[in-house]
Nucleic acid binder design. Structure first.
Length: 941
RNA sequence: GCCGAAGUGGCGGAAUUGGCAGACGCACGCGACUCAAAAUCGCGCGGGGUAAAACCCAUGUGGGUUCGACUCCCACCUUCGGCACCA
């Protein structure tokens, strides 16, 4: 079909229009049919396991999913062309609260809701043209998946890594479930999902011993991860070194405290216990009992929100009891205060007001003694009577018996001073203390009081107690026939068939655990299930694991830095210690792989992409008229206008920008003054240019700021619509071109035109055939040079995740080809070589158009099975360069010189140049600097 | 408060890590084609300055190191992120 498509070269019969919708559907089918994206073990090729964080099946593929996945796909495709055997799987993180809440709201079963969503999202994902191997898809809510999630629980239980305890845990009253510590956010300690402030609840809950791995998790030496993530994990783990010191109450009960400053032990003038500390009861005297009990009750009643809301003002009560300081046998009072946390250290501290700011504030408030034990040097001596703040810095020990004069200077890492070591050794000799390490990290709370998750495989027997479900009985199936409570309370608690079981141990009646597991458990090991999602002999097939593991490149959002990424590291280490990798390791060794650290870390490299935000937009300018009802306008008519210039606002009128819109109201912001609520009903007439009499309030555009995309903001970009309009290649390329991948930014609906034009130009360039040129060797060399420069730029961009500059290089190459066509100086063979290379370079970014044009230019199927073009620096080298002439560092001239110019020649030409002469004022050059690599001469006068 | 990241045209962003600031693209302006519009094509596009050049200013601000600084150092400002009574 010939068309009216015109271009700079006029029409040709061969050129038809680029119609991505037709091309993409056709190739997607063909690739699917040919199994082009199947990944199978191939011992002859190096493997590359590329992984992108799996999506939650919310039902819609968000532009954010495209943003996360298509650059990862481009990189995976590139590695494939470079000769790697690439595995790039995809699946769904399908358990979780959203499904359950949606089910309650819409009266659909979570399983059905989830599966419908997955089906829909699979379809959407296929349009993206990614090389996902769908044979390896894993869905965490399928019984043959969660069977293994449960199996892991049992392994961890068997190895002492899972335990149950009564604990005051964070509970979200809205979601009706407990939360792990990292799921509680912000100053007001709200639920990560719904924003409701959490409360404390005492519940029997299951925990994993993540703290056992604190030091190993702190060690990032085996992995190449962003500094930012490593720092966040390090902060989260919060390791501090110091000593445990045993104080005793007057009755002789030991009271262990943790301190990072054992060198200040002589300055301890009182002790503080957390209100929840078990010794509080015992040390409290009759006289103080009422006050202490009131304080403890008050602290228990207060949530942590209230505690922090009160600011830093210290509160506390004297217990009446005394402790003996082991270093000097001093008798010091024991207080309780809520600034000491029961959950950190031992829940008790020695208070050294002279050298700790919190203790200082407490001492000042309650008029407790302050004693200097570290005297700073070279400054005025500290005096307890006029200090305004504690001195946490360096100095020399004083008032500390035999240690007086010991220097306390911070060394190396600035965390520990030399006196700490000296005193700690002495404590150890005395048997009153020992060096110790404390962590902020706590054990992972995995119990969730919800239905839509993997049931914890435990039964409770009156006779045998806590009994794990035998591995052969897995999975503990989630029953389908359940009645959901509007409160979100788990229906499992009321499901007799699920609840009642027999004890695997004694065969007597027993009850099942009704809590399910945190969904982060499911996503902690999915990278292993992808290897063999239907394998039944274990969580994954060791043969597959031995070849593919570990993940070579992981990509995903930064928001998982301290949650998913810590959990999955913990999981892998725990799996290793439970022997889960033993067979895999043996096979890997047979394959000749170095297995020394092969299963210590799940993902070797990590890259965090940014986020696409909503596009900012002005609201419509409107003139609304009607009758005012108080401050509100009941509108009879709302007219959209192009400008407010010259609009006179009469009685019963308001004119301004629409800032917000609901189903019936508009918030209108006049150029001056307060915004006005404009109420509408079905009789209100809307007058919107471009819409006829059927215009409704829904066509009114409201003001949008740059914000996260959300349905309520009305700023969500739908990838389906974009794909329909522009094609997947364009959407992929635009996402890669328009942002720095690590940063993201606000969507720009206009910018996509640049990519549309690029692909249209490429299409025209290729389909219109070679120029009718002769064989000019200089032009041929120029074109080949440009091609090889592009090979380098595109390769470098892909290597370093700089997809934007890689696409820019492809656009530049297209521009060069257009110029070459216009000049019409290169012969057919040179032209074809350039086009061939350009298509190969485009293949990872725009796989469909590349394949189509590959076929049309007579190449054998498939472009995605071709080798990446080899970069040749000699072809890429320029033979003439622009020599930049600077005088005192300022550019004064530019001269064209041959590329291989000798240093002396360059300097001579630079000195002779007009620009240099002009600015040297006849003065002799003091120094002439030649930077050959950059083609630059700097003359210093 | 502590720790970290980032500030470049109207906008998204480049700049091989100390060597021509603004690649590539969007938007915009002018012109061509058209009855007209869209699309397409050509030219321009940091600010000042000039007839055109020359030249001057310019990478958050102020200093410094250097022949030479977006890049390194010091101080400050702004924005974003993490942690936060953690003993």
């Amino acid at each position: 079909m010939s068309t009216a498509h015109t271009s700079w070269s006029g029409k040709t019969a061969m050129a038809d229009k680029y119609t991505p919708q037709e091309i993409e559907a056709r190739w997607a089918q063909r690739w699917e049919r040919d199994g082009l994206n199947r990944s199978t073990i191939d011992p002859d090729r190096p493997k590359f396991y590329a992984l992108t964080m799996l999506p939650y099946p919310s039902g819609d593929l968000h532009i954010g999913h495209w943003y996360a996945m298509s650059p990862s796909d481009a990189r995976a495709r590139w590695l494939q062309m470079k000769g790697y055997n690439v595995l790039f799987p995809m699946g769904f993180d399908a358990f979780g609260l959203n499904a359950e809440n949606a089910a309650i709201k819409r009266k659909i079963h979570p399983k059905i809701w989830t599966e419908q969503n997955i089906e829909f999202m699979r379809r959407q994902l296929r349009t993206m043209g990614a090389i996902f191997d769908w044979e390896r898809e894993a869905v965490t809510s399928h019984p043959d998946y969660y069977k293994w999630t449960q199996w892991f629980f049992l392994q961890f239980y068997k190895h002492g890594l899972a335990y149950r305890k009564m604990a005051a845990v964070d509970f979200c009253p809205q979601c009706n479930t407990t939360l792990a510590r990292e799921q509680v956010w912000g100053d007001d300690r709200h639920c990560e999902r719904c924003g409701t402030p959490v409360i404390k609840k005492d519940l029997e809950q299951w925990f994993f011993r993540t703290t056992d791995y604190a030091d190993e998790l702190l060690d990032h030496s085996q992995i190449d991860w962003p500094e930012r993530v490593k720092i966040m994990q390090t902060n989260w783990i919060g390791r501090s070194e110091g000593a445990h010191v045993v104080f005793r109450t007057e009755d002789g009960d030991p009271m262990e405290v943790f301190t990072t400053r054992p060198d200040t032990l002589w300055g301890a003038t009182f002790m503080v216990l957390a209100p929840e500390h078990p010794l509080v009861e015992k040390v409290t005297t009759a006289q103080q009992r009422a006050a202490v009990e009131a304080y403890v009750a008050e602290a228990a009643r207060k949530s942590e929100i209230d505690r922090t809301a009160e600011g830093k003002e210290k509160t506390g009560v004297f217990t009446g009891g005394y402790a003996i300081n082991p270093v000097n046998s001093e008798r010091i009072p024991i207080w309780i205060a809520d600034y000491v946390l029961i959950s950190y250290g031992s829940g008790a501290i020695m208070a050294v007001p002279a050298h700790d700011q919190r203790d200082f504030e407490f001492a000042r408030k309650f008029d407790l003694p302050i004693r200097i034990v570290i005297q700073p040097e070279g400054a005025e001596d500290l005096n307890p009577d006029n200090m305004t703040e504690a001195w946490p810095g360096e100095g020399v020990m004083v008032n500390s018996g035999q240690f007086d004069g010991t220097p306390a200077h911070y060394t190396g890492d600035g965390k520990k001073n030399e006196a700490v070591g000296v005193v700690t050794r002495w404590l150890e000799e005395q048997g009153t203390g020992h060096a110790a390490v404390n962590y902020r990290l706590r054990d992972w709370l995995i119990s969730r009081q919800r239905y839509w998750g993997a049931p914890i495989p435990i039964v409770y027997c009156d006779d045998c107690g806590v009994v794990p479900v035998p591995e052969d009985d897995l999975p503990v199936l989630l029953p389908h026939d359940v009645d959901f409570m509007p409160t979100g309370e788990s229906p499992l608690k009321y499901h007799e068939g699920f609840l009642n079981t027999t004890c695997p141990h004694c065969g007597g009646p027993a009850k099942r655990e009704t809590d399910t597991m945190d969904t982060f458990m499911c996503s902690s090991w999915y990278q292993y299930r992808y290897l063999s999602p239907r394998y039944d002999g274990g969580p994954f097939d060791p043969e597959e694991g031995a070849y593919w593991l570990p993940v070579d490149q992981y990509t995903g959002g930064i928001e998982h830095a301290t949650m998913h990424l810590m959990y999955t590291r913990f999981f892998t280490k725990a799996m290793r210690d439970c022997g889960v990798f033993d067979r895999t390791k043996a096979i890997a060794e047979r394959m000749g792989r170095d297995t020394a650290h092969l299963f210590d870390e799940p993902m070797l490299r990590l890259f965090n992409q940014g986020m696409i935000l909503g596009e900012p937009r002005d609201g419509h300018l409107v003139v609304a008229e009607g009758t005012f009802d108080g401050g509100k306008l009941n509108a009879a008519r709302v007219r959209v206008v192009g400008s407010l210039d010259g609009v006179l606002v009469g009685a019963g009128q308001v004119a301004g920008e629409v800032m917000k819109r609901t189903e019936t109201t508009l918030i209108v912001q006049p150029p001056e003054g307060r915004s006005v609520v404009v109420d509408t009903d079905d009789r209100t007439v809307f007058d919107i240019p471009g819409f006829g009499s059927d215009a409704t309030i829904n066509q009114i555009k409201h003001h949008l700021e740059v914000e996260k995309m959300s349905k309520t903001q009305g700023n969500v970009v739908a990838p389906d619509e974009l794909v329909e309009q522009y094609g997947a290649d364009t959407v992929r390329a635009y996402l890669m071109f328009a942002f720095r991948w690590d940063q993201g930014g606000p969507w720009d609906s206009q910018g996509i035109q640049g990519v549309v034009r690029w692909l249209n130009d490429v299409w025209a360039l290729v389909t219109e055939g070679a120029p009718q040129g002769g064989g000019d060797p200089a032009a041929a060399r120029d074109l080949r040079r440009k091609v090889h420069q592009a090979i380098k730029k595109v390769s470098d961009g892909l290597e370093s995740f700089a997809f934007n500059t890689a696409v820019a290089a492809l656009m530049e190459l297209k521009n060069e080809l257009q110029d070459a066509r216009r000049a019409s100086k290169v012969e057919r063979a040179v032209w074809d070589e350039a086009i061939t290379n350009m298509l190969l370079l485009m293949a990872p970014f725009t796989p469909f158009i590349a394949e189509e044009l590959w076929e049309r230019t007579g190449h054998p199927y498939s472009i995605h099975r071709q080798a990446w073009p080899e970069y040749d620096p000699e072809i890429a080298a320029e033979d003439e360069i622009t020599l930049v002439v600077q005088v005192n560092g300022k550019v004064r001239d530019r001269i064209q010189v041959p590329a291989g110019i000798a240093e002396e020649d360059a300097k001579r030409l630079a000195l002779e140049s007009g620009g240099a002469q002009r600015h040297m004022d006849g003065k002799p050059p003091r120094k002439v600097i030649y930077v050959g690599q950059r083609g630059m001469v700097n003359i210093v006068v």
